[in-house]
Measured scan of single mutants.
Amino acid sequence: CHSECLGNCSQPDDPTKCVACRNFYLDGRCVETCPPPYYHFQDWRCVNFSFCQDLHHKCKNSRRQGCHQYVIHNNKCIPECPSGYTMNSSNLLCTPCLGPCPKVCHLLEGEKTIDSVTSAQELRGCTVINGSLIINIRGGNNLAAELEANLGLIEEISGYLKIRRSYALVSLSFFRKLRLIRGETLEIGNYSFYALDNQNLRQLWDWSKHNLTITQGKLFFHYNPKLCLSEIHKMEEVSGTKGRQERNDIALKTNGDQASCENELLKFSYIRTSFDKILLRWEPYWPPDFRDLLGFMLFYKEAPYQNVTEFDGQDACGSNSWTVVDIDPPLRSNDPKSQNHPGWLMRGLKPWTQYAIFVKTLVTFSDERRTYGAKSDIIYVQTDATNPSVPLDPISVSNSSSQIILKWKPPSDPNGNITHYLVFWERQAEDSELFELDYCLKGLKLPSRTWSPPFESEDSQKHNQSEYEDSAGECCSCPKTDSQILKELEESSFRKTFEDYLHNVVFVPRKT
């Protein structure tokens, strides 16, 4: 048989008469490798580009789960590009990614509803959504962080984005990388972005840091009482949809009607710091009717980097990364020049730590249904340095008659930039024990000054392991946590139920 035959053949030295091919099969003959313009397919066939392209389009058009959109890589027609490569849609070739590779997620039936953290986790790592997304989240724990972890990498949506009755959302900033909504599939009414009845939605994105392009379709905003109209108009300008909307697409009466839409800028007039305090004062603000001013709200939190936005980490279910302080308005003076500047002394802060701070007014709604208010920009203030805590785990070892090696770990709280350490030492008198000992005694162990690591005695271990207080009263049991108490109650309830079950099964009433 021919060298490319495997198993047997019907005619000697003829690659077209093989029972099976050793390498690849091409047009009725066995070959060692697939010549151009053919590609290896499933490690035994040679196919042309049209064959591989037909497989790709067949799966793409069917949208069946589990099928493969075949691509070409290293002269092979394979189910998908290997790690580190992405497909070129024009020629199906796998090309190296520039940075992290995109991950295209194809949605069944063309859309997916995100109504819980669990459903959001199914899209973790996706960068391109081939379909439409509907966000409908009523509640949950730590929602802002969970949504950002699972949806934060999405850069492109081919269909539309719909935010509907998501009472738990305060902001859409968890879509931190969303840059493009194509609108290839539109919501009824030709809408590519749809926001309806979101009672706590206050911000779409921080438009000073976020760009969003909507290729096709219109915007729809109705019944978002805490979303200011200025935020919607800003989205029109940034996304390129200005002029597409009709009169009733953006409701003037049901958007922002319960919001404090600040239209003035508060400026800080005085800032002073110490290692654990920050004193702030800002310019006074009074609405047209000074009785509408209820006070100020001061927001602050630790910020290692200057990239904080107002609604980071917030949701309507209680999660809030900001510390909020309510401040009463100052006494009002008739003389504008003698107006008191409101302020606040922030206490209990960490030394040498940068804080993000902003302040906003708290006002009631005027009778004319106009909203007044003022808010400052987010500023960054760093507390002063102070003395560091003591170095940890000092170790001293003498390696000769004239040297001592000293080692330690950095302090747990540096409280500033540590530039150097101060080492103090003092000579001590020799131990009298060394002169009084009889060095001729056998088995004498000389006193040693070398360091030995501390260890816990058996008594201390027994005390720590004991669940009861000892007789001397030195140790006591740790208080039980809520989960331990709940577990004990469940076990007790189970024992009672099981005992009742045994009584009912074992003891049967005697027939009379």
Results as ranks from 00 to 15, higher is better:
329 P>I: 08
263 N>V: 06
278 I>K: 01
161 L>I: 14
347 R>Q: 09
352 W>H: 13
358 F>K: 09
329 P>M: 06
186 L>P: 10
287 P>V: 10
254 T>G: 13
220 F>S: 12
306 Q>K: 10
193 F>K: 00
211 N>I: 14
127 T>K: 10
172 L>N: 01
327 I>T: 03
250 I>D: 13
299 F>K: 09
302 E>P: 09
131 G>Q: 01
334 N>R: 14
309 T>Q: 12
116 S>F: 06
117 V>F: 13
239 S>R: 06
283 E>S: 08
194 Y>D: 09
338 S>C: 04
148 E>V: 03
180 L>N: 04
279 L>T: 01
302 E>N: 09
200 N>Q: 10
202 R>P: 01
243 G>F: 08
311 F>R: 12
359 V>L: 08
175 F>K: 00
159 G>H: 02
209 K>A: 12
405 I>A: 05
127 T>S: 10
326 D>I: 07
106 H>S: 08
122 E>F: 04
372 Y>D: 08
286 W>V: 04
397 V>I: 14
241 T>R: 11
289 D>P: 02
378 I>S: 01
214 I>Q: 03
248 N>Q: 03
196 L>W: 14
155 E>N: 10
191 Y>C: 04
313 G>D: 02
397 V>T: 09
397 V>G: 14
313 G>R: 12
170 V>C: 06
114 I>M: 08
288 P>V: 14
214 I>M: 13
410 P>A: 15
276 D>A: 11
153 L>Q: 07
274 S>D: 14
162 K>V: 14
336 P>Y: 02
227 L>N: 00
275 F>R: 15
191 Y>N: 04
223 Y>S: 10
241 T>V: 08
409 K>A: 12
255 N>S: 08
342 P>N: 08
193 F>A: 02
179 R>I: 12
203 Q>L: 05
347 R>P: 12
217 G>M: 01
221 F>C: 15
344 W>P: 00
207 W>L: 06
333 S>G: 06
383 T>N: 00
214 I>P: 00
387 N>D: 03
322 W>M: 03
334 N>P: 08
325 V>I: 15
374 A>P: 15
222 H>R: 09
240 G>P: 03
298 L>V: 07
206 D>V: 08
371 T>N: 09
299 F>Q: 06
215 T>N: 14
377 D>Q: 05
119 S>M: 13
306 Q>T: 13
240 G>S: 03
369 R>A: 04
385 A>S: 06
115 D>I: 02
291 R>S: 13
288 P>L: 08
304 P>N: 12
360 K>T: 03
246 E>G: 15
268 F>P: 01
171 S>C: 05
303 A>V: 13
284 P>F: 09
139 G>T: 03
155 E>A: 05
183 G>K: 01
169 L>T: 09
161 L>Y: 01
380 Y>P: 00
313 G>M: 13
255 N>F: 08
341 H>G: 14
286 W>F: 05
335 D>N: 06
372 Y>P: 11
260 S>H: 05
369 R>H: 06
304 P>D: 10
126 C>T: 01
258 Q>N: 03
218 K>Q: 04
350 K>V: 05
296 F>T: 00
266 L>F: 07
207 W>K: 03
218 K>M: 12
115 D>A: 04
359 V>E: 00
353 T>M: 02
294 L>K: 12
214 I>W: 05
245 Q>T: 11
281 R>T: 09
383 T>R: 00
226 K>G: 11
158 S>P: 00
342 P>Y: 05
342 P>H: 13
201 L>F: 11
149 A>I: 05
215 T>V: 09
368 E>T: 12
342 P>M: 11
404 I>G: 00
395 I>Q: 05
156 E>K: 08
381 V>Y: 02
191 Y>D: 02
266 L>M: 08
144 A>Q: 10
171 S>T: 08
188 I>A: 09
283 E>Y: 07
332 R>T: 12
246 E>R: 11
269 S>V: 10
213 T>N: 05
351 P>A: 09
387 N>M: 11
209 K>L: 09
154 I>R: 00
184 E>L: 10
274 S>M: 14
348 G>L: 05
364 T>D: 15
208 S>G: 14
356 A>N: 01
359 V>H: 01
201 L>G: 00
157 I>P: 00
134 I>D: 14
273 T>G: 04
319 S>D: 15
242 K>M: 12
351 P>T: 07
263 N>K: 10
207 W>S: 04
181 I>T: 01
376 S>F: 00
250 I>K: 03
162 K>Q: 15
302 E>T: 09
